[in-house]
Design a protein around this nucleic acid. Structure first.
Lengths: 123, 123
DNA sequence: AAGATAATGAAACTCGTTCTCATTTTGGAT
DNA sequence: ATCCAAAATGAGAACGAGTTTCATTATCTT
């Protein structure tokens, strides 16, 4: 049974309020402001649990995992110069999905696209 | 100046001969067969160097980095059940790229799509 | 062959993340 | 309201991929 705890709520609120894509360490820091004393393990455990429940989303960019409040499917654009990460939509046309099936035999259940380039500021 | 060493050659050959997508640890093991005594550091250093030169390709899947002999652009399909990773092509239609530009202001230089689902064997 | 310097191997070290375990909280049953 | 089993917590140890350090070795240029 999944229980309601102050830590869990605080962690969820922090992610939901964040308008960037915080890493676990950043979530940890922000949670400290609200609820000092929360341990790293708790933050990691809850981020993983919340992601599993679909309340938040995990994104792996390079060597760190970042968390995202959005729960709807979306993709990411990463700036090659400043590293900024922004949400974008990259819909895959059904003929592309069909082509993947033909190439690989995979029954496609989901997809995620990472686009790289230069953000508006870095251009 | 970049020097030619037996280790470097062995590492490149191992990746080129591999028809799966070996992790650094797997490359290490396979190199041992050919050239015992090679250190982890050497494997990592050379994989990174070869990737930088564009001789091989680095793919980050979850928490490990895998290496791929293919040097042309391509995408990946990951099986959610057995973890198998296969190469596929997911071309992005120009109108999709255009839409990303409009959404984000990004000048798109490249992209990589990960498709998840069930492979032919796991279906 | 000689010298400059790039590459190597071993081991120590990062750093993000997970595990362990004793203690505290939670929520349903009484 | 109280009790209790199970779930969650916090502290710190442990883990694992990858990187750094540094003394030694190998490679190129002359």
């Amino acid at each position: 049974m999944i229980r309601q705890t102050k830590q869990r709520q605080a962690i969820l609120e922090v992610v939901e309020r964040s308008h960037d894509h915080p890493t676990a360490a950043q979530v940890y820091e922000r949670v400290q402001q609200v609820l000092p004393g929360v341990g790293y393990a708790t933050v990691y455990r809850n981020l993983a649990a919340l992601a599993e429940e679909g309340m938040i989303q995990e994104i792996r960019v390079g060597e760190v995992t970042q968390y995202d409040r959005r729960s709807d499917r979306h993709d990411h654009a990463v700036c090659g110069r400043c590293g900024k990460l922004v949400d974008v939509m990259v819909p895959l046309p059904s003929e592309v999905v069909q082509a993947v099936l033909e190439q690989s035999g995979f029954q496609v259940a989901g997809h995620h696209t990472e686009v790289f380039g230069l953000c508006a500021d870095c251009r």
